[in-house]
């Protein structure tokens, strides 16, 4: 990782790191969405159909 940044300017390193941090945050938020979706389905289960119309 440090080797790859060896021949870069400070600005390039800054942008590269910021991009990687953004990807990591995006993945974490995506995982959170999936977790909440799955937990909702599990918690409600078949009960999701069992409600007055």
């Amino acid at each position: 990782m440090a080797d790859e940044e060896k021949n870069m300017t400070q600005a390039e390193i800054f942008q590269r790191r910021r991009r990687r941090r953004s990807i990591a945050i995006g993945l974490a938020l995506g995982a959170l969405v999936l977790i909440f979706y799955a937990v909702t389905v599990i918690k409600l289960g078949p009960g999701v159909f069992d409600r007055p119309l």
Binding site: F14, R20, R21, A24
Partner: peptide, 15 residues
């Protein structure tokens, strides 16, 4: 401005 900021700190890596 960004380049100047970057020269003081490139920000942390994900690791």
């Amino acid at each position: 401005h960004n380049a100047k900021t970057a020269s003081t700190s490139a920000g942390g890596r994900v690791e």
